[in-house]
Design a protein around this nucleic acid. Structure first.
Lengths: 236, 236
DNA sequence: TTATTTCCTGACCATTTGGTCAAGTTAACG
DNA sequence: CGTTAACTTGACCAAATGGTCAGGAAATAA
């Protein structure tokens, strides 16, 4: 009988599990994003992760367990974005920050957004619970804030839920439909500068659209963002 | 099978093919919408259509042929919406009509929108050609119109492509994410009245957002849509 | 009527799929 | 060193999948 059920080390062997799980999760995210749960296969994921399929099943016993883990990570990112919409008296500040955050996430983690989209399209077999609890509560709490802005005359009277849908859809579109956007952009991804403009446009149109700011013709940007949008180091 | 054919075609046999293809295509659309091309199975589609799988393959030799047909139908609907964005001097009229049309399509044909979303997420294996030709040309022609409105001082200077993305994403969101919307709506779909409000909100925010109309606080609606919006025939 | 075309379907097949397993290899620890 | 626990993987399996086919049913044409 084995007497030493040791606690995991922090040495070579110990890091292997952590490392491999990370590699597998990343591969899984991109395959699930592209093909959805049913359409993805464990072989594809293993291949993407550059490991034998049997090894994948050593770390994640079932496809479903792996998927759940992926979805969980994505939900955490969602929560992170949600936090940036804080209870602030100034709608311009609160919404600008939130939209900007969501746009950043779309750019930095497009696969996650696609997995989420697939989940919803498939009627949320895994995250339905989140939708009914965490998401619903959060949405209602933000609706309260938005209604207060309306009552204070800071924005036009619009129904909070539809404003949120507009923010979600517009920002996530840059992740979920990035292939279409890229195609229309001549086959190349939006540059950093273009993405900056896209972001500013989204913020501008929504904030103006709800009457939070009074934009007049010929002034695209106010000062909602620093001026450093110029060259911004094109990434390859 | 059923003897529920009330409307006889010219001859019984003649109408059978047409009728069955329609049933199969409808079933295929909803299954492809939910699971994507890879995730969908011909058995699922056959079951949804209430016919044996072998019969499905009698009408559509391969899964891919069936999928292409589905996608083709959807593209035609897209074209139909595209037509409603006409070369009009008034941005309010042109955009209101276009957005309204897109919202109606999202409501009447949510499955089609989801198939499209899946296609794009999967990098458009089937419609890439459309994206590069028809869609690109259309987008550029609309950009010209939008730039003219800007030059004429009718709307704020925004980049046309990002405006189009916002319209697409916002309107299609009501189809692609209708499950999430329904969940947040307490488990029931948006009523006709709610959908009407959603539509008006979208039109209002975007038109105001680009400076096409000067909305002030406390006046949600103007008369942005024609009179015939009266009852709109409550479905179910 | 008979002949012909169209439609229908249970049974079948080759391939792919999620998942297992036993036999290894590698690293930690005494 | 030897023992042990963690990691690796080729080979395998049962179920699911896309697709076929032969034979039958139904409508139309002759």
């Amino acid at each position: 009988m084995k007497k030493s059920e040791r606690v995991k080390k922090t040495t070579a062997k110990a890091g292997i599990r952590q490392e491999n799980e990370k590699i597998i999760l990343k591969a899984a995210e991109s395959v699930f994003a592209e093909y959805g749960f049913r359409g993805a296969t464990t072989s594809m994921i293993a291949e993407q992760a550059n490991i034998p399929k049997a090894n994948l099943h050593y770390y994640f016993p079932t496809k479903e367990a792996l998927y759940r883990q992926v979805v969980d990570n994505i939900f955490n990112i969602w929560l992170q974005a949600a936090d940036s919409f804080d209870d602030c008296d100034d709608p311009v500040e609160a919404l600008s920050r939130y939209i900007e955050k969501k746009m950043d996430i779309s750019r930095d983690n497009p696969m996650g957004s696609k997995v989420w989209a697939n989940e919803i399209i498939q009627r949320a077999p895994v995250i339905q619970d989140y939708l009914e609890t965490t998401l619903k509560d959060w949405t209602e709490s933000r609706a309260v804030i938005i209604r207060r802005w309306i009552a204070q005359g800071k924005i036009n009277p619009i129904d909070p839920q539809y404003l949120l849908y507009m923010i979600w859809s517009t920002t996530q579109h840059y992740a979920d439909f990035n292939h279409q956007i890229e195609t229309l952009n001549g086959g190349t991804p939006l540059s950093d500068a273009q993405y900056r403009v896209a972001k500013d446009n989204v913020i501008e149109i929504i904030l103006t659209g709800i009457g939070a700011v009074q934009r007049r013709r010929n002034s695209l940007l106010q000062d909602n963002s620093p001026k450093d949008q110029q060259e911004k180091s094109d990434r390859a």
